[in-house]
Design a protein around this nucleic acid. Structure first.
Lengths: 208, 208, 208, 208
DNA sequence: AATGAATGAGAGTTCATTCAT
DNA sequence: GATGAATGAACTCTCATTCAT
């Protein structure tokens, strides 16, 4: 049962000590989950990375799984909301340009803005079915957002007509998410990567 | 120190008892590692899936890590050799057609032929740096194979001239590998998927 | 790398909970190691004897071997310091009387005062060379203490002149240590045993 | 229930393959038990040292414990018989000289002639009470042999009158056995060691 | 709000033992 | 006579979790 406690992306100084620790834990856990996976990340690791001892985590979360839930939840919410905003803003624009903008946004949130979104993309598929199931509804909402976007583009004649939407959406998002595997924020620029990726997705590799 | 004991893809009845058990263990472990990750897969799980008890695994492997090493090694070797063969056969053919064929082969091995290749693609990035390092040389050989293939195509004018090879290779392989996340062998046809993927990669989603 | 945390011989009520448990574990382990050997003593045995569960030992020690190290270290330190004190006090006394007093002290520490010293004497020789090597320096310091003591006595003409020091020291200490094999604190008096032993060592069994 | 299969001290070429393997196992096991203790010596180690595989041991012995029993048994029997022979030969001789000869013989068997005797001296005290109990009768026979020898010497006025026999026997044998801890056959001569030891035991360390 | 100290379940691993070949 | 292959029990060790302080 993922809940939607608003995760303060930047722990403002006005936030309570509780909220700050809460965020610290989630960020620390997210980084570990993303880098080593859920099972391989111990609560002692997480606590240490958050500047406390393992037992203290239980003041903020009821279990390791609850930390994971909070992270997964926040991660999907963040891309979803960001991409939805872009789509809304693009109401009048060229449909293909919106697809392109949405892809760029997805990549930006994934690679630069949220430590939570990348956790989703990287480890959700490896988690126990039971946990995954809890997060399906939210994921579905996001995939439906994309399928609608793509269907609109196709209807507007801005997408190759012979492409089936659902498989396309799957491939498209998976391809975007796969950047997580090799992207290194210290060596690369998110915008440049986004530009390249969308370019490839729109026009492919073959010469015209 | 990954070694290259040839893993008999199908345990023939002629193989010794040792070889059959050895293969059974590797396959069982590969399936579990791919589905739940390395840390979350227990030796008891693996043994049960291979039809034996946990202690018996040690007659065949010295440690859990050694099982992993054998799997990762076999997985890379298999795609590498398959794709290399395709490239060799395509000596005279159109360079872009060879890229397309290589992609199809990569996908086929990944999704249908080898239980070991998919383990690589799915969990290598989550493994401890120390383990990952052991398998880097082999991975490098495979990525170099692709980069050469792509560079040749570009020189032949069969690839958009403005694309940088290394980032392209990264995105291309990651995109192909991402199919592992959603591909369901019981509901989909590998060839159809390969066709769609290569189509998208070659020409993109935008209408001409 | 044996360290020298002072082991409180009697866990005073003023000691912290940690220190009390730490000592309890060392004492329990020492008794078991001495009676059954290192390999035959399980962590469950030790934990039970110390009033806790196996896993809890790891809050106090990093491994079974570390417990052993701490015990061996404490054991040698205790005889060494006790005997050294006796030698210092005997500065002015008859050299042979000091040897005799040192032997008595060695026996007293070994049989009555320290649960750690007897572990050394009984199982050190059976431990893996690697472990033994770690404790050699400390052992050496103790044997040198005795050799100096004996040499001084010989120079003072209080020891048969034809005896070689090193072999004597070896035989002497081994003979004293061998009492551990049969001494039963419930049936015998340490002082009486010490008296008999030193008598035999000084004058032998033959009538004058 | 220790049995008395005659252990061929030197595997004569006339011995059957069975007997040779049987002896090989006992010797290999004895060396390991003496050097590392019973619990720390694995059947795989023993088998390897005897030139076979673990499972093969069961063709010769029913269990690890049975190997131990055979070794302990043979060890005591050997010193017992050797010392008894010396005593018999010394019927007419000076009682103290016989004690001295017995000690020399004990040391020779212990350090040079039998790989089985030293096992007894080194690890019997660490074994489970249940095993130890099985070998008590034989040990008793040996200690009684010595006590009689010493009592005779004392009655003949060749032993200090104020010495109690039983404690003396305990100390004497333990002291002799303690040589096992430091004796190195490659660096020392058994006879020389025996000479020194008996000298010390007879006359002590103090000058006359 | 956090920690020190402990726990119990289960992890990877070892090993005496078995048995078909 | 001996081995290859397996087993089950028990080992050392890890970890999520608890709770008094």
């Amino acid at each position: 049962m993922p809940s939607s406690q608003p995760v303060s992306s930047q722990s403002t100084s006005s936030a309570s000590k509780f909220d700050r620790s809460h965020d610290e834990i989630m960020k620390a856990a997210a980084r570990l989950f993303r880098d080593k996976g859920y099972a391989a990340s111990t609560l002692r690791d997480i606590a240490a990375a958050a500047g406390m001892k393992a037992g203290s985590l239980y003041y903020h979360f009821d279990s390791k799984e609850e930390i994971l839930d909070a992270i997964l939840d926040a991660g999907v919410r963040q891309v979803h909301d960001s991409v939805q905003a872009v789509i809304r803003e693009g109401k009048e624009a060229d449909r293909l340009a919106v697809v392109s903008a949405a892809a760029r946004t997805h990549l930006t949130v994934l690679l630069a803005r949220s430590e939570f979104t990348s956790v989703n993309m990287r480890i959700l598929g490896l988690l126990p079915a039971e946990i995954r199931a809890r997060h399906l509804p939210l994921r579905r909402a996001y995939t439906r957002l994309w399928e609608k976007l793509l269907r609109d583009a196709q209807r507007a004649g801005r997408l190759r007509a012979d492409i089936e939407i659902k498989p396309l959406r799957r491939f498209l998002l998976a391809a975007l998410n796969s950047t997580v595997e090799w992207f290194d924020p210290e060596r690369e620029d998110v915008d440049a990567v986004a530009e390249r990726c969308t370019g490839l997705i729109l026009r492919g590799i073959a010469p015209d």
